[in-house]
Amino acid sequence: MSLFLGESSAIHNPVVVYALVCLFVILIGATIIVNYLHSRGGSGEFDEIVQRLRTWWVIILLLSSAILLSSETSLIFFALISFLGLKEFLTLAPTRRVDRNVLFYIYLSIPVQYLWAALEWYGMFIIFVPVYLFLFVPLRMVLSGNTSNFLKAAGILHWGVMTTVFSLSHLAFLLMLGPTDRNPYGSGPALVLYLIILTQLNDVAQFIWGKAFGSRRVVPSVSPNKTWEGLLGGMLTTTTLATVLSIWMTPMTLFQGVFAGIGISIFGFVGDVCVSAVKRDLGIKDTSQMLPGHGGVLDRVDSLTYTAPLFFHYVYYFCY
């Protein structure tokens, strides 16, 4: 099999392969349990969970093939997520007709930003959106000469591109990180899987803990389903797993792994409620209907908009 896959394929990394195998084992287990509970007469909410699980299969199959094929396909996969997320954001957020061409340039920033990651040009990667694009957007807006709602429009465009393009593209740069002496297999693809598995598992764990024990709400005005019990239970689950997996999948020490887990848990929650706040502001429930059972792409990657840049800089500072 490795004959067909190039040098950059993660198939040569046993940690990645085992992690993916574990992921599929969990997925199969979850499918069996959910189908069993569903057949025993759980309906209503369970229909949605069955559908959500089916969508998880598609997401995980796409993600694992992208990672196993090559680093290029992984970058294209992440760029596509940025594109879909940005499209959902710009469709829902108020925009101005005169800014149609600005929107087009903002979409163009996606391939450029992921190119910096592919080239491993860190300096450019880290300043392109927050400096160059940040300054270019108002410049182009001024040229069209319409000042009504100027500030609001510029703010919306900046926030959208920072979350969906800049933040999420940290997954791409994380993927390009090489092996370290500490853990030769704890390189890019393993780190990306570590982050994505923990962030998404944290969502699921918070949901399950909240359903089972939840009563005290954290931010009732933004997201009424988020409870302290869910948050703390999720944190416990995520941190335990993050610590155990850190030795195997990352170049971090055990101690660093504990804090990575706590960070992913807290900031995954923050990313989630920030997107919830945006949706509440606009008066919508889901960002689109692209992922049956989940809503839109932005609904799925909301936590990653916080955890991806924060985890990247944490690892980059301590281990590289």
Binding site: F83, K87, E88, L90, T91, R97, R100, N101, F104, Y107
Partner: peptide, 18 residues
């Protein structure tokens, strides 16, 4: 709904919108 934002009358630039 929305196609008028992606390509309104009299414009040639197709901008992605859902």
């Amino acid at each position: 709904q929305g196609l008028g934002r992606a390509l309104p009358r009299g414009e040639g630039l197709l901008v992605p919108f859902l």
